[in-house]
Amino acid sequence: MSNNHLMEFDNEKTTDVLEKSKQLGLLEKDLVEMYRTMISIRLFEEMADKLYALGKVHGTMHLSAGQEGVAVGTGKVMGAEDYLLNHHRGHGHFIASGADIKKMMAEFLGKETGYCKGRGGSMHIADVEANNLGANGIVGGGIQLAAGVGLAIKMMGEERVVLVIFGDGAANQGILYESFNMAAIWDLPVVYLCENNQYGMSADVTRVSSKVPFKERATAHGIPGYYIDGNDVLAVYETMANAVEHARSRKGPVFVEAQTYRYFGHSKSDRNLYRTRDEIEEWKHRDPIERFQKLLVDANIITEEDIEKIYQEMSQLIDEAVEFAENSPEPDVSEVTEWVYA
């Protein structure tokens, strides 16, 4: 059994959602909205998988089902003016940051109406005008840019922060340490979020990493580091709120590592040979959506009836996005060489 380094968070686990949300300044409607967003991500990913199975997707995809707690806890914290650098398993973070699901689905299907006019696909969804600087097909790709975005924010004297999200795989790319060093010596407003889902493709994080958790590598650079339960959406929100506040108040970079798990394989070629069915099932007992749902139900914030209604609404939203994408035009092949240069 792998994952023997996993931390238990019993002491810090959110058990009383009312108490916790009060402490965090979240209203009941915020909690319901967060829950709805988590559902929309899960349904988006399941639809993406289905569309692929139906042969409607030309390229590859990297699904984040199981990681909704990290996405929504983080997205709720970030301001519209903050920059986002995302990783290749990024659908959830985009949805949580308020992206238009129709445009995402259209990009996924390679249509002209997609965020990148069908030039990028799932791995490169970006919305630069909305400060979303893109998902990245290179593991650690966003890390390369993060210090520069932070430097620009500092030079322009702005109050924004840049959030760069990457996985445990990227934590072993050398650029992370060049970036840590630069961000630390220049006190840049960079929030590093390592979404540790236990595997870099098939590589068990403990097998390929000299030392875990990675937060110790951040603290070794003088950067405050946190290790949290990524499947506890309110714990994510709490830590990310503190982290963003730290960066925004010009105290320099900060690092958060969120422990989580992906249910689907790495990409469409994955046959899950490197992990057991039992392991996947075990993680489903820590499912971020079910945990949050139980808290909300126990606190009488939502009822079973509400849940059904939310699923229906979100499902309809996804269906509409698919319909929009399918009815959208293909890019004009005569424009294949557009936008190489500005």
């Binding site: 840019l145 993060a146 520069g148 430097l151 620009a152 060093n181």
Partner: peptide
């Protein structure tokens, strides 16, 4: 990191 930083700063 220098070229990455330049690219990041240029993008914004």
């Amino acid at each position: 990191a220098i070229i990455g930083a330049a690219a990041g700063a240029a993008m914004v």
